[in-house]
């Protein structure tokens, strides 16, 4: 079973007017409750790197995601990969709740079905996600046929000027074609965010906050020509810090996860 050493991620957020109401407060990796305002849209550009036990396990990817707020509680997102370095046997998993780690184009519909204000600067909210990924390659690097997959997830959280807490979980399962199927991935995540008193600046000053994120994921063994692949699948629990800086409609987010 392959071991993941760490995941690094750098995200550039460009949210356009009428947008970025809630996506702008989210963590990097874990499940959260992002929802744009009605008619708002957001462009996220991500660099993601994963380090394994050797260069053949390393992965680098650029991923671009465009999100549109259909209503204040329904958001649709589409993301597209630009692979830079693809691992052969590393379990693909799902290190980011909102983006696939595969060479897939992915569409996700998010519905914030519960939202309750808890005062001037705080609220509780919960979101469910449903999505589908279409592979942009015929075969994966390990020789398996790339097949479409579906994704479901849910997250609930508390948001305020001082603290952020989210817990979430999700499941991604691939279709089987010609006896090939990637292993299904299950993940859970927990995120705590904190904005120190000195950084609780009023708009339009920059807005900086810090998160500690924990992601646990398990990927089942893949199937090739109807047989389980021995060097596929795996489990990992990763924990690490991330930070988010916002200024008006722009944001910069970066984080690093380590296996524990």
């Amino acid at each position: 079973m392959r071991q993941l050493r760490r995941i690094a991620l750098l995200m550039l957020i460009v949210a356009m007017p009428r947008g970025a109401s809630a996506s702008g407060h989210g963590p990097v990796f874990g499940g959260a409750t992002p929802t744009l305002g009605r008619g708002g849209w957001q462009l996220d550009q991500v660099w993601m790197g994963r380090l394994g036990n050797g260069s053949r396990d390393d992965e680098q990817m650029l991923r671009t995601m465009i999100s549109v707020g259909l209503t204040e509680d329904i958001q649709i997102s589409g993301s597209f990969p630009i692979p830079l370095q693809t691992p052969i046997y590393m379990p693909r998993g799902r290190p980011m709740a909102l983006m696939s780690a595969n060479q897939d184009a992915e569409g996700i519909l998010a519905w914030r079905f519960q939202r309750r204000p808890l005062g001037p600067n705080a609220r509780l909210e919960s979101t469910v996600y449903g999505g589908m990924a279409i592979p942009l390659e015929e075969f994966r690097k390990d020789g398996m046929r790339a097949t479409p997959s579906m994704y479901v997830a849910a997250a609930t959280g508390y948001v305020s000027r001082e603290h952020y807490v989210w817990v979430g979980g999700g499941y991604q399962r691939s279709a089987e074609m010609s006896g090939d199927r990637a292993g299904a991935t299950t993940f859970v995540s927990a995120v705590y965010g904190f904005r120190p008193p000195a950084l609780r600046l009023d708009y339009p000053k920059p807005d900086l906050r810090f998160f500690v994120e924990a992601v646990g994921e398990h990927t089942e063994r893949g199937q090739h020509h109807g047989f389980e692949m021995e060097f596929s699948g795996g489990s990992a629990v990763l924990v690490g810090p991330t930070a988010l800086l916002l200024y008006k409609e722009y944001g910069l987010e970066a984080g690093l996860l380590f296996p524990v």
Binding site: R18, A20, S21, R123, Y203, D207
Partner: peptide, 21 residues
Amino acid sequence: ITIHGMDCATCAHAVRVAALK
């Protein structure tokens, strides 16, 4: 107007831009 549930700079920015329209 008092607004409840607004926590971040982009939240405030979204409200401002929309109101200006």
